[in-house]
Amino acid sequence: MPRKCILTWQPGSGDRPGGWRKKYKGRVIYCGHGNSKSDIESYKKAVNGLVAC
């Protein structure tokens, strides 16, 4: 069964914002910022940025 999300939400701490991340070949790639994991627009932007890399 395929996964629904390819990115994981990493919550921020203190004054740092949270962001989306992807683990690939043992490395963590950070793919953008957003307000929360329910922020669909920031998720779509992060996925598009990941595909472009």
Rank of each mutant, 00 (worst) to 15 (best):
A52T: 07
R27M: 12
D15R: 11
G18C: 04
I6Y: 03
V47I: 15
C5P: 01
M1S: 11
L7P: 05
M1Q: 00
I6T: 07
G26R: 02
S38A: 15
C31M: 14
Q10N: 12
I40S: 09
L7K: 00
S13K: 14
L7C: 05
H33Q: 15
N48Y: 03
G34E: 07
I6L: 09
K4I: 11
G32R: 05
P11G: 08
I29N: 13
S13Q: 15
S13L: 01
P17C: 06
K4A: 14
D39M: 00
K37C: 10
P11A: 12
G14W: 05
I6C: 13
G14V: 06
K25D: 11
R3E: 09
G18E: 01
S36C: 15
R27W: 05
S36L: 03
K37S: 12
Y24C: 13
N48I: 02
Y43C: 05
T8L: 04
I40Y: 06
R16L: 04
G12H: 11
Q10K: 09
G26F: 05
S38W: 03
R21T: 05
Q10H: 10
L7V: 13
G34A: 03
S36R: 09
K37V: 01
M1E: 11
N35Q: 13
G49K: 12
P11Q: 08
G32N: 06
G12W: 06
S36D: 15
P17S: 10
L7M: 07
C31S: 13
N35P: 00
C31K: 04
G26S: 09
G32P: 00
G34F: 08
V47H: 07
K44E: 13
D39S: 09
S42K: 10
T8Y: 00
K23S: 12
L7Y: 09
K45I: 04
S38G: 12
